[in-house]
């Protein structure tokens, strides 16, 4: 169990995390979804004891990270966002060293190292120095280093950044396997699809604040089943807003010179009316798309901008 209560972290004047609270339960994957600079890594670093929180409480399996750091760390596995590997050491060296750091030794450590090498699929390359590994292999080893000591809580900070789709699927499977064993996972990402596919509960973050929190279904409900109609072209934002205001039960999410986004229930039935209104307002339509409710639509609704900008 990972508990974060009213966490606040400031770097000088910059508030990186601003009053964040959530609880991640055992056997579940809790997702932190947010764009670059949202404060995801800062939360992870506060949990792993690397950064002292400015205020608020963070607990891992009941141990306060500030007051009982060693107890908390013992239960915690960390997979940092940047690869944290020694180029000259082998995969086996890495796993054995990380295990020893958590007090493992002897045959227990050896068996576990072999086991983890199997899990991350690096048995064949176990004795090669890491500098000869591909990016995906390094990512898998980076993950392996975080689970050698069988942690009950696992912090994964964007573990799939920069890996090909195949390795990504593999890594996500690894995460699911861990959870099946009862581990509590905190997973940060800025890929919606990943959060949607993997996480049981999700917190959507921006600028250090949690904007929405819940299961995927709960979050969808917040959108009131709104679909999104996205129209590209050339528009006059003011006239677009005036024209669309006359239509019933639609929400203008954004109106910009090159993009208009509209949210509406059962939008497929309203597309023609929307397009007509846009044309009347003097706009020029180039491309239209309709999307079902998703985290992205929710994010856009919450922040007025796209997640990857």
């Amino acid at each position: 169990m990972i508990e974060v209560q009213d966490l606040r972290k400031q770097y000088g004047d910059l508030v990186a995390v601003d009053g964040v609270s959530f609880t991640a339960a055992p056997g579940c994957i809790f997702g932190l979804l947010g764009p670059n600079g949202a404060g995801k890594s800062t939360i992870i670093n506060c949990l792993s004891g690397l950064l002292p929180p400015t205020s608020g409480r963070v607990r891992v399996l009941g141990h306060d990270v500030v007051a009982q750091p060693m107890e908390a760390r013992r239960e915690l596995g960390v997979v940092p966002q940047e690869l944290a590997l020694y180029e000259d050491l082998s995969a086996r060296d890495h796993l054995a060293y990380r295990g020893a750091a958590y007090g493992m030794s002897g045959s227990d450590l050896k068996t576990r190292v072999d086991e983890v090498l199997g899990i991350i699929g690096l048995q064949d390359r176990a004795r090669e120095p890491v500098k000869r590994f591909s990016g995906g292999m390094k990512r898998r080893l980076n993950f392996g280093c975080g689970i050698v000591h069988r942690p009950k809580a696992l912090l994964l900070d964007e573990p799939t950044v920069g890996v090909d789709p195949q390795s990504r699927v593999r890594l996500l499977d690894l995460v699911r396997e861990q959870v099946a064993g009862g581990t509590c996972v905190l997973y940060t990402t800025h890929y919606m699809e990943e959060a949607q596919e993997l996480c049981d509960r999700i917190a959507i973050m921006d600028h250090g604040k949690v904007l929405a929190i819940g299961t995927l279904n709960e979050l969808r409900a917040m959108l009131e089943e709104h679909d999104l109609v996205r129209v590209r072209g050339r528009f006059d934002p003011t006239r677009v807003r005036q024209a669309l205001a006359s239509l019933d039960r639609i929400d203008v999410v954004s109106a910009e010179p090159d993009l208009v986004v509209v949210a509406a229930q059962e939008a497929s039935r309203k597309v023609s009316a929307i397009l007509a209104a846009l044309t009347q307002s003097g706009g020029e339509i180039q491309e239209t798309s309709l999307s079902q409710p998703s985290l992205e639509s929710l994010f856009i609704k919450l922040t007025g901008r796209q997640l990857r900008e």
Partner: peptide, 13 residues
């Protein structure tokens, strides 16, 4: 620089 120092700061030693 390679991040291994941070990782070592997260261990219970």
């Amino acid at each position: 620089i390679q991040g291994t120092l941070r990782r070592s700061l997260a261990v219970p030693s």
